[in-house]
Amino acid sequence: MNYTILVTGAAYGTQNASTAFLFCQSLVKTKHTLYSVFFYCDGVLNANNMTQPASDEFNLIEAWQKLNRQHQVKLYVCNSAALRRGIIEDEKKMNLNVQKGNLAFCFELSGLIELAHSIKICDRIIQF
C-alpha cells in the first residue's frame, strides 16, 4: 500500500509529529510505500531550521531530514501555513526583508494541490 502522512502538530509541545515520525519509520521498514509527508497548520514548524532542542532531547527535524535522505520520502510543507508561522525559504527572503530563510534542508514548500495529488495516488492518508 502507498501512504501519505499529514502532520498537523508542531515538532515539540505535542506528540503528533513524533508519533507520525515513528509511524513513518515503521512504514519504510515494511513492504508498504511512504510516498510523502505533508506538514500543515502547526505541523509546518517541523521544517523550522532554527529549532534547537536541548542536547539530551531527540532532534525531530534532523530525523525527518534523515528519513528523506535514506528513503527518498518527500517532505512537503504548506506554503501558506509556513508563511503565517514565519517559515520561509532563502529564495523568498528578498521580498520579506530578512537576512536568511529558515526552511530546513530536505523540506519543500508546496501548496494544497500537492496534498490533493498525494491523496489521489495513494491508498491511505493518515493524519497526526
Rank of each mutant, 00 (worst) to 15 (best):
L34W: 09
A20L: 05
L6H: 02
N16R: 05
Y12A: 04
C24K: 04
S36N: 12
Y12G: 08
T19I: 11
T4G: 10
F21D: 06
N2A: 12
F23W: 08
A20F: 04
S18D: 13
T14H: 03
Q15G: 04
I5D: 04
T30F: 07
N2E: 15
F21Q: 00
T30S: 15
F23E: 07
V37R: 00
S36E: 14
F21T: 06
N16V: 00
K31R: 11
L22V: 06
F21M: 13
L27W: 03
K29R: 11
A17G: 05
A11P: 11
T8K: 14
F21W: 12
L6F: 09
C24S: 15
V37E: 03
L6P: 03
Q25V: 04
A10T: 07
V28E: 06
Y3H: 11
A10R: 02
H32T: 11
T8M: 13
Y12W: 10
T8G: 12
V28P: 04
T4H: 08
A20R: 01
T14N: 05
L22K: 08
S18M: 09
A17S: 15
Y3Q: 02
L6E: 12
Y35A: 12
G9E: 07
G9Q: 02
K31F: 14
G13R: 02
S26Y: 09
Y12R: 05
Y12Q: 09
A10W: 05
Y35S: 12
H32C: 14
T8Q: 14
V37S: 03
A11Y: 05
F21A: 00
I5Q: 03
V28L: 05
N2S: 14
A17Y: 00
